[in-house]
Each structure stands twice: as structure tokens, then as C-alpha cells.
Amino acid sequence: MDNPALSTELGIVVMLCILAASLWIPYIVGVNKHPQTNADSFARPPSLEGFPEWVHRAHRAHLNLLEQLLPFAILVLIVDRLDAYSTVTLWTAIAFFWLRVAHAAGMITGAARMPVRPLLFTAGWLCCLIMAGAAWKG
């Protein structure tokens, strides 16, 4: 049975999935560290208004990662299927991963303020476009 090695691009998608699967942790820590009164969190999660700002930002960081991970991962899978990997796709995947780590860390800590946070998100979007271009040419 043939067992091909995982490409760097697919390996990065795996790491991004682990990041996305773990990014709920800061939010849950914050929610449990600052419980809200008169809220049945089982029936409906409490409004983010009663929590410290970093808890809200942790929630947004998770959602922002999911917004970009899905299209990026699909594009990498298409590039893989077309065997269209190149130096450009390699460095685009690496850049995308570190942009998403910086975005999540900056968002949760509050360090990535205007204009850094939207620039990080936009750079991730550009990585998606570059990967789409590789798929299109593939």
C-alpha cells in the first residue's frame, strides 16, 4: 500500500485545524472565570457584554479563524488534488499559518489594535487568493 508523505501545505492545514479546534479554550476559560448571574448557559450562552473584553475577543478570534480556515483548507485540497504545489504555495501556506497565529494571539491579548488586526486578516485573505490562483493554474 502506497503511503505518500504529507505535503507541507497539507501539514499546515492540519496544524490550522488543531489551532481552530483549540481556540475555544481561552473563551471557555474566560466564561468560567467570570460567571454571569441569572444566565442559563445551557439553554442559551450568555451575552458577551457582561464579560471582560478579552473574552469577547477570544470568541471573535475563534470565529475569524474559522472564516478563513475553511476556504484556505479547501483551496489547499484542490491544489493537492491537481498536484499544483510550488514554492509559492509552500510559502503562502507557511505565511498563512503564522498570520493566523499572530491574529489569534493579537486579538485575544488586545495587542493587535487598528490597523494591525485588519491588516493581518487581509493578509490571510490575500493568501487565500494566491492559493486560489495556484489552483486555477493547476
Rank of each mutant, 00 (worst) to 15 (best):
25 I>N: 09
10 L>D: 11
78 I>E: 03
61 A>K: 08
126 L>W: 10
93 A>D: 04
59 H>I: 08
41 S>V: 12
128 C>T: 07
35 P>A: 15
58 A>D: 03
109 T>K: 07
20 A>M: 14
64 N>W: 02
111 A>T: 12
28 I>G: 09
46 P>E: 07
38 N>R: 01
136 W>Y: 15
88 V>A: 02
50 G>C: 08
64 N>Y: 09
71 P>V: 00
70 L>V: 13
14 V>R: 05
84 A>C: 04
85 Y>S: 12
69 L>T: 02
94 I>M: 05
103 H>T: 10
87 T>L: 11
79 V>D: 00
44 R>K: 13
10 L>M: 12
55 V>L: 07
125 W>H: 11
92 T>F: 02
56 H>Q: 15
11 G>D: 04
116 V>Y: 07
51 F>G: 02
45 P>W: 05
36 Q>W: 06
104 A>D: 03
4 P>R: 08
54 W>Y: 07
45 P>A: 15
71 P>L: 05
96 F>A: 00
84 A>T: 00
1 M>R: 14
5 A>T: 15
42 F>H: 13
27 Y>I: 12
64 N>C: 09
128 C>N: 06
59 H>V: 06
57 R>G: 04
81 R>L: 12
95 A>Q: 02
50 G>M: 04
48 L>A: 13
105 A>R: 15
80 D>E: 12
85 Y>P: 05
63 L>R: 13
113 R>P: 04
59 H>K: 09
58 A>V: 04
18 I>V: 10
137 K>F: 05
33 K>N: 15
7 S>T: 09
115 P>Y: 13
38 N>V: 01
87 T>A: 13
11 G>N: 04
125 W>T: 10
14 V>Y: 06
53 E>W: 08
22 S>K: 15
21 A>W: 14
106 G>E: 03
22 S>H: 12
117 R>I: 06
36 Q>C: 05
121 F>K: 06
67 E>Y: 04
100 R>G: 01
106 G>N: 09
72 F>M: 02
39 A>N: 13
66 L>V: 09
25 I>V: 10
134 A>W: 00
34 H>Q: 14
64 N>P: 11
22 S>G: 08
73 A>V: 01
105 A>L: 10
66 L>R: 03
95 A>M: 10
82 L>I: 07
27 Y>W: 14
57 R>C: 05
111 A>G: 08
137 K>T: 14
58 A>S: 07
128 C>G: 07
87 T>K: 13
10 L>K: 10
121 F>N: 10
51 F>K: 03
72 F>C: 00
127 C>H: 06
22 S>R: 09
117 R>P: 02
24 W>F: 14
125 W>A: 10
132 A>P: 11
121 F>P: 06
127 C>W: 04
69 L>D: 00
118 P>F: 05
119 L>R: 15
86 S>R: 03
17 C>G: 11
122 T>W: 15
57 R>N: 08
